[in-house]
């Protein structure tokens, strides 16, 4: 099969205090007192959707619009040609926990049938598909700390395998009491220093030729990806495939690329808290924003494998369209 260049053609973000992808490059806390991004979405059909779904719809809409795929109304391309990949570890944990609490207090009779779809962890990807009429292959990755970067790579694999022509990738996590319980092992009461990310990031992937055919800009190009036992192994695997110098590193911890300084690295968790399944997509959106301000260069995104089953790394470079 001929190699295909896969590029980012649109980005979106839904985080309190963040107006757009460029704001992810600010080295200051996002400021939790900003407007709730989920309120940007209005209209019928939002009842019964959990917070993660609402956040994902906001970021997803921005990414599709940025890619020039949202017409008035509907998509500018056939729905069967668009796939969805969502990354979230905690998206429906609140529904699960609220439901067992209700069963304990009131038996099954106290439940609302409308909560049933959200007991399955694919509910976010399912609503994205329904909301935007995306009928292609639809995946939900719940893959721990590497999940976001894994999701971006699965989006690329769907393109390479010829399953779809473009993919909406969304990373999202909600902050709430059940997530806090789960992440802290039951030890956090909300008044300690555990900071949970509450937001979503989204990007659209297409082949470079599809982007050219549509006459839109390639914002960044995907380079190699690896999921390995730890961060040094993941980074080394990328360097073997593409040894070009890294200009900006989105990551933290031991075993990152050589020669990085405070100025050439961004640890998004410092400003946005524990991002879990959203992290990799958030890094790629931030990396795309950084590349948009440069004529050349390479950005490396990594998930620190410290304490996890694995680490992942993904390289982004300036898109071929400029």
């Amino acid at each position: 099969m001929a190699p295909v260049d896969v590029v980012v053609s649109g980005v979106g973000v839904a985080v309190s205090g963040i107006a757009g992808p460029d704001d992810l490059l600010r080295r200051t806390p996002a400021g939790a007192d900003g407007d709730d991004p989920a309120r940007r979405l209005t209209g019928k059909g939002l009842r019964y959707k959990d917070r993660a779904t609402r956040l994902a719809l906001c970021a997803g809409r921005d990414a599709l619009a940025d890619a020039g795929l949202l017409g008035d109304p509907g998509l500018t391309v056939p729905g069967e040609t668009v796939g969805v990949v969502v990354s979230s570890n905690y998206g429906n944990v609140d529904t699960i926990c609220d439901t067992v609490s209700t069963i304990a207090e009131e038996t099954y009779v106290g439940l609302s049938p409308m909560a049933l779809p959200a007991t399955a962890s694919n509910v976010i990807a399912s609503w994205l598909a329904i909301w935007f009429r995306l009928r292609g292959a639809n995946l939900t990755m719940c893959n721990g700390s590497t999940s976001g970067l894994d999701a971006v790579n699965w989006g690329r694999l769907l393109l390479l395998a010829g399953r779809v022509d473009r993919v909406l990738v969304v990373g999202v996590e909600p902050a709430n009491a059940p997530v806090r319980h789960l992440v802290s092992g039951g030890r956090s009461n909300g008044e300690d220093d555990l900071r949970l990310f509450d937001g979503a990031a989204a990007l659209v992937l297409e082949s470079a030729s599809a982007v050219r055919d549509r006459g839109v800009e390639a914002l960044a190009e995907l380079g190699p990806y690896a999921r390995k036992a730890d961060q040094p192994a993941a980074v080394a695997a990328i360097r073997r495939t593409d040894p070009r110098p890294v200009d900006m590193w989105f990551g933290a911890g031991a075993g990152g690329p050589d020669g990085m300084t405070e100025q050439t690295s961004h640890d998004l968790t410092t400003y946005h808290g524990h991002c879990s399944g959203a992290l990799g997509v958030l890094q790629c959106v931030a990396g795309t924003a950084w590349l948009s301000g440069h004529d050349r260069g390479a950005v490396l995104a990594t998930s620190d494998g410290d304490g996890s089953d694995a680490a992942a790394a993904l390289l982004l470079t300036v898109g071929g369209g400029r």
Binding site: G144, S147, R227, A229, A310
Partner: peptide, 28 residues
């Protein structure tokens, strides 16, 4: 007690089989 890292199956598969390229796909 439950460790959040066991929510996806990569953790168990890494311990048992040394697997590092694992992907938990929650597709209903």
């Amino acid at each position: 007690p439950f460790d959040v890292r066991d929510l996806h199956f990569g953790t168990a598969l890494r311990k048992r089989f040394g697997a590092t390229d694992t992907h938990t796909v929650a597709n209903a």
